[in-house]
Every structure is written in structure tokens, then in C-alpha cells.
């Protein structure tokens, strides 16, 4: 590119601006700046209904502790993240191992089916569950269980949290399924052959050969899913919207409600800030754990 400049170092700066500039701009505006804005907002009493605002310093954070529901929300979040994670990993692992023993074509069909919830719009997936768990006699579960219970059960009232866990679990299990399936495929067939030659039963092979090799994928899925579960609330928003009476209100949804329903941007930001800090710490731990730094490979063509 003699057109631009013949000085190699000037040229590399120009390339940086052309190629990385747009991405950098968006990242600055939608990631870096928001982090600082969240900090800023969390120290104010800004609200959408109020024309003026003032600094309240740590008041919002103190109110987090004092809020009558924050303890409940925190416990909800722990239960939700923990249980959903367990559901994801266990179901995903079970499915991955079972489909591993099928022929390729069949296992592909099953994995594709499991990906359907992830591929279809969240609103539609949420709608499907609303119908399955419908409290009236028309809900699927109530139709199926009518012979046993006799009268319809209000699932999303009586069993709101388990419902939310299963709904999110089906989405997350597809992620684990893909990760685990690929990891299983990557196991050198020699290991399995050697174990069979040694006379191991299939159950033993799963226990002694396959599972130990799945340690890293399981850790990866756990780390990854913990973060996305902490932050995502879209399915809860659609299905229960945190109800009934804070039963399924998790931290991120709490922040959302405070900001956009009660229109308290400042308090919402303080709640979000706590999530941001947790997420940042988790990401840094992940980076160390999974040696992300090693993914930085050198450039092998120096001419630009």
C-alpha cells in the first residue's frame, strides 16, 4: 500500500485506525462509557420522573442493604443460578454421552432439536412455556395430569422458581450439549479402544475414561454459564416478570425493574454496578483459568 505512506510504522498506525477504529468507537461508547456512567448514576438519585437530580454518594448502595426485598432477591439469584447451572451441566452431559453412542445422523437430529429453543425467538419460547404451564385446564401439563390431580394446578404460582429453572435450563443445556459433544468427539479413539481391549464395560469407560477427560469442558461451561445466568433475565421477564410476589425476582431483573418500572435510574444503577463488579471479577478469573492469553498468537506476515 504505497498509496498511503512508505513509512512502515506510520502505515501500521493508519491501518490500525482504519481497521480497528470503528470497533473501538463502538466499544468505547457502549462498553467503556456505560461502565463509567453506571458508576456515575449509582451515586445520584436520578430518576425518569424527576426533573432534577443530585449527588447522593453511597446512599443507593446503603439502600441496597436496607431494601426489604434485596435479601430475598439475592437468595433467589443464588438458587436460580445454582439450580439452573446444575440442570444445564447434568442434562447436557447426560445427553452428550448418550448421543455419543448413537450414529452420527441420529445424534445430529437430537442435538438439532435441543438447539431449537436457542434458535427461536425468546418471546416465542417463553410463550410456549406459558402455555405448557398455563394455570387453566387448557395448559398442557394440566391436560396431561388431569387424570391424576383432577383439577388444574396453577404451576407458575405454586412452582414459579422450579418453572423458571427448567425454562432456562433447556436453553442452557443445549449450550452444554454442544460443548460436551465436541469435547467427546475430540477424545482420541485409541483411549476407548485401549479401555475395551483391557476389558472395561461401557459404564466403566464412561466413568473412568470419558468423565475425567470432561473436566475442562465442564469447568468452561460452568464459568461461562454462571456469568450469563447472573446477567440474563429475558425469559423470566416474559414468563413470570419476577412474580408471584418476588418469588422469581433475580438480581438483574430487580435492577431492570427499579430502573425502568419504578424509574429509579440511580438505584437501578447501583444494583447493576454490583453485578458489573461480580462479572468483572469472574471474567478475570476465567482469563487466568482458561489461559486466554495463550490465544494471542503472533502475526507471521510483517509486510503491510
Amino acid at each position: 500500500m504505497g498509496l498511503i505512506s512508505n513509512n512502515p510504522s506510520v502505515r501500521s498506525y493508519i491501518y490500525m485506525i482504519i481497521f480497528l477504529g470503528p470497533a473501538l468507537f463502538l466499544i468505547l461508547f457502549f462498553w467503556i462509557l456505560p461502565v463509567f456512567s453506571t458508576i456515575f448514576l449509582s451515586f445520584t438519585n436520578m430518576g425518569m420522573r424527576k426533573p432534577n437530580w443530585e449527588w447522593v454518594y453511597l446512599k443507593n448502595y446503603m439502600f441496597v442493604g436496607a431494601h426489604p426485598f434485596s435479601q430475598k432477591v439475592a437468595i433467589n439469584t443464588l438458587v436460580y443460578v445454582g439450580a439452573t447451572l446444575a440442570f444445564n451441566v447434568l442434562i447436557g452431559l447426560l445427553l452428550a454421552i448418550l448421543t455419543f453412542y448413537m450414529d452420527d445422523r441420529t445424534s445430529l437430529v437430537y442435538r438439532a432439536l435441543w438447539l431449537l429453543p436457542r434458535a427461536s425467538p425468546p418471546v416465542v419460547y417463553g410463550l410456549l412455556w406459558l402455555w405448557v404451564l398455563d394455570s387453566s385446564e387448557y395448559g398442557l401439563l394440566n391436560q396431561l395430569l388431569a387424570p391424576i390431580y383432577g383439577k388444574p394446578v396453577p404451576w407458575l404460582v405454586n412452582y414459579a422458581m422450579p418453572g423458571i429453572i427448567v425454562i432456562n435450563g433447556f436453553i442452557g443445556a443445549s449450550f452444554s450439549l454442544i460443548v460436551f459433544s465436541s469435547a467427546l468427539k475430540a477424545i482420541p479413539p485409541d483411549y476407548l479402544m485401549a479401555a475395551r481391549v483391557d476389558g472395561a464395560s461401557e459404564l466403566r469407560i464412561v466413568k473412568d475414561v470419558i468423565l475425567p477427560l470432561m473436566k475442562w469442558p465442564i469447568m468452561f461451561v460452568t464459568a461461562w454459564q454462571t456469568l450469563s445466568l447472573l446477567a440474563s433475565y429475558e425469559y423470566i421477564l416474559i414468563v413470570t416478570d419476577g412474580g408471584p410476589f418476588f418469588e422469581t425476582e433475580v438480581w438483574s431483573l430487580f435492577a431492570y425493574h427499579q430502573a425502568f418500572q419504578h424509574l429509579e435510574l440511580g438505584f437501578g444503577a447501583a444494583l447493576a454496578m454490583i453485578l458489573v463488579i461480580i462479572a468483572l471479577i469472574a471474567v478475570l478469573i476465567q482469563m487466568k483459568l482458561f489461559r486466554f492469553r495463550e490465544m494471542i498468537t503472533p502475526v507471521k506476515i510483517e509486510h503491510t
Binding site: 457502549f30 453506571t38 456469568l227 453485578l275
Partner: peptide, 25 residues
């Protein structure tokens, strides 16, 4: 390298936590 590290951090970071601030901006 710095940019790569930034991308790695961000692609694992749940951006939705920044929703309130993005709304404000």
C-alpha cells in the same frame, strides 16, 4: 495485543448489565 485482551474480556462479559447506563447515554 491490548486490543485482543480487551475483546477477550468483553466477549465473556455480559453486556446486558450495562443496559441502564446505555439507556441513559
Amino acid at each position: 495485543d491490548s486490543f485482543l485482551i480487551l475483546i477477550i474480556i468483553l466477549h465473556a462479559f455480559p453486556g446486558i448489565t450495562l443496559l441502564i447506563a446505555i439507556f441513559y447515554l
